[in-house]
Every structure is written in structure tokens, then in C-alpha cells.
Design a protein around this nucleic acid. Structure first.
Lengths: 183, 183
DNA sequence: TGAGATATACTCACTGGGTGAGTATATCTC
DNA sequence: GAGATATACTCACCCAGTGAGTATATCTCA
């Protein structure tokens, strides 16, 4: 069940789509439009990729589509989220985000978006959790830094880069709280 | 020719492999080991992915492999870089890296690695170029910041995140010069 | 009035990044 | 003498992502 891919590159917008569908049934075209409008700076997803994901979600049983014929426009498939899909989404929303920069930029902000919509301080809790995770990640990287052989200059540089990025992410997280309060 | 993929996710270690092969012919197992040792913090590549790429490079004519039978160990395929492959590599090395954080962390550091090996100030020039590119990117993002509708809080947050990350990258670049001089 | 852009809605075939498991042998270690 | 580790590569698979194509309706502006 809920067999998450383990490798870090696997940041699929499928949960964003599930999240939109959790708010109510709709069709692929609309989902793509909403993704662009609300999270377009986070996800850069083509229309066809959107449909690809919907196809997969349907095959997995997270959503079901019903065909509606329209008089003159192309037929629509309206997707509904299933109980299984809803459970997967809730599960994902409660899963802490890793501390890679990419995970924060993409997965964390997406989670934050849906948590914020629900109100009641969920977003703030999410941020505080993430601050803790990033702090721990920083410590881990800092101790890893000492283990390099001197000839591995570029591995060291790579690690320093990640450290700087994580520190910046931490600053951003702390600023995030204020931004979300002020709107 | 040199049909680069256009989308940002496309950061293939193929050029790193070409770069190693440009230093001399060798086999897949050794290439994977070298990639891990010298750039393991930059590329997280499984063995099979390494072989996948070699297969593609051979199909494209950038490298050629010759089979060597060994008495008791598995056969080896020794790969040589072709003239076309060498040209592709040189081309890539001279191409400026984009200003996404990921591109810098991965592509830029890889370029820097090979430029540094050649000496004669190539690495320093690369860094100075990149500083300029990142500065321009920062300005572009800063002006994009003003164009958001007020309801697009999360797009704005996403953009702020990228801004912070780029500023940190700029600091890192400036530090880089010192690190490379001091070894 | 009529040409061209833009919106609606989806399909298809493809590339390429990435993984995990499997194969078979030799040597090192305890 | 058993079990880990190194050598060297193959295979089948998943999924992220793209670009082009299809077909119609409405809006825009000269």
C-alpha cells in the first residue's frame, strides 16, 4: 500500500491533482488550468502530463472518470476522487517533507497550499515541523562535511552548496509564517 | 545537431561520462566508480543508469565499445570516445549553465570539475560567467515578482524561495574562487 | 464581413531518467 | 569453510515530461 517511490527525484504533481479533486469533481482541462494559476511557479506541467497522471490515478483506483457528451464541444471526462484516493491524499498531506531543496520548493509548498486552505493553524504547524527537519538536515550535512578525502574538492564544493541552500531555505521558512499571517 | 533538450529537468550525467572518457578509454564499471568518487555528491546515479547512458552514447556514435574477454572475470567492454563525442563534450563545456538552482548544483559543478582539470584559469572564467548569469536571473525574477495577482500567494512564495536560493548560490560562487585557488 | 487568434478538451507516440533484481566468478576476511 | 565484498554487466520495468495533432466555437479587430 501507499508504496512511495524512494528516490528523491520522484516529486509527482499527482497529489496536487488529488488535492484539487478532493475539493470537488472536475475535468482534466480545468485541473491543468488550476494547477497553473495557483501553483504555476511551483509545477511546470504540460497539459499532456496532466492527462498522463489522471490516467494513472484512474488505473490505480484513486479517481474515477465519467464521460459527459457535450453538444458541440469535445466530450468531457469528469473525475471524482474515490475513498482510496482521499485516503492517499490525507496520508500524503500528513507525511513530512524531506529536507532536499527541491523537495521543499515543490512538495512542501504544495502541502502548504492545501494545508492553508483548511485553515485552523495547519499551515503554521507544517512550517514549524519543516523548520525542525531542515535544522536536523543541516546538522547531518555539517558532520558529513568532515568525512571527505582532500582530493574530493568537488564533492566538498557540492556539499557546501547544499548547505548554503538549506540555510537560505530555513530563512525562507521563517519568513513564510509572517507572509501567511498577513493575508 | 547537439539537440539539447529544452526542459530544465533534463540534466543528464552523459557529459560527465564523456568527460571521463575524454581522458582515456575505459569500461562501464570503472566509469561508475569514478563518477561516485569524484562527483558522488553531485550525481546520484545507479550502475544500471550508467550502462543505460553508455548504450545511448554508443547508439548516437559518441563512443564505441570493444569487447575484451577476460579469463575468469566477466567480459569487459572498453569504450573509446569518437571525434563526434569529443566535439559534443567540448561544445557542452563551453555552453553557459542556466540559472536554475538545480542547474548550478549539478551541471555547473560538473563543468567546473572538468574545466579545473584543464587548468590555465578556465575554472575562474567559468565562475565569473556564472556570476553574471545569476545576477541577470535575479533581476528577472525580481521584476517578475510584481506581476502576481494578490490571490496567488503561493506562487509568490515559490518565487521568493527561488530568489533566496539564487542569492545563496551567488554567495557560494563567490566563495568558490577562493576554494579553488587554495588547493 | 471575414481572417486569425484564442479557448475548450483531449489523444498519441515518443524520449530519457531512474531503479531493483539478477548473473556469475574471484578474492578477501574472520 | 562461510559470508561479505569486488568485478562487470544485463534485463524488464516505471514514470516524468514533451510536442504535435484533432476538432470545434467564440472572440477580436481591421
Amino acid at each position: 500500500m501507499a508504496k512511495h517511490s524512494t528516490y528523491v527525484g520522484a516529486l509527482s504533481p499527482e497529489y496536487a491533482l488529488l488535492g484539487f479533486l478532493e475539493q470537488g469533481a472536475t475535468h482534466g482541462y480545468d485541473l491543468h488550468r488550476r494547477l497553473l494559476f495557483h501553483l504555476g511557479q511551483i509545477w511546470h506541467i504540460s497539459q499532456s502530463q496532466c492527462y498522463n497522471i489522471l490516467k494513472r490515478l484512474e488505473a490505480q483506483g484513486d479517481i474515477v472518470g465519467e464521460l459527459y457528451e457535450q453538444p458541440r464541444l469535445p466530450d468531457r471526462r469528469i473525475f471524482h476522487i474515490t475513498e482510496q484516493g482521499r485516503a492517499r491524499f490525507e496520508d500524503w498531506l500528513a507525511t513530512p517533507t524531506g529536507c532536499s531543496v527541491r523537495a521543499i520548493r515543490v512538495e512542501f509548498i504544495t502541502r502548504l497550499y492545501f494545508a492553508h486552505l483548511r485553515g485552523s493553524g495547519e499551515a503554521e504547524r507544517l512550517i514549524q515541523n519543516q523548520v525542525e527537519i531542515v535544522r536536523q538536515g543541516l546538522e547531518r550535512l555539517q558532520s558529513a562535511q568532515k568525512t571527505f578525502a582532500p582530493e574530493q574538492t568537488f564533492n566538498r564544493l557540492g556539499l557546501e552548496f547544499r548547505l548554503q541552500q538549506l540555510r537560505a531555505a530555513l530563512d525562507w521558512l521563517q519568513n513564510c509564517v509572517k507572509t501567511l499571517q498577513g493575508d
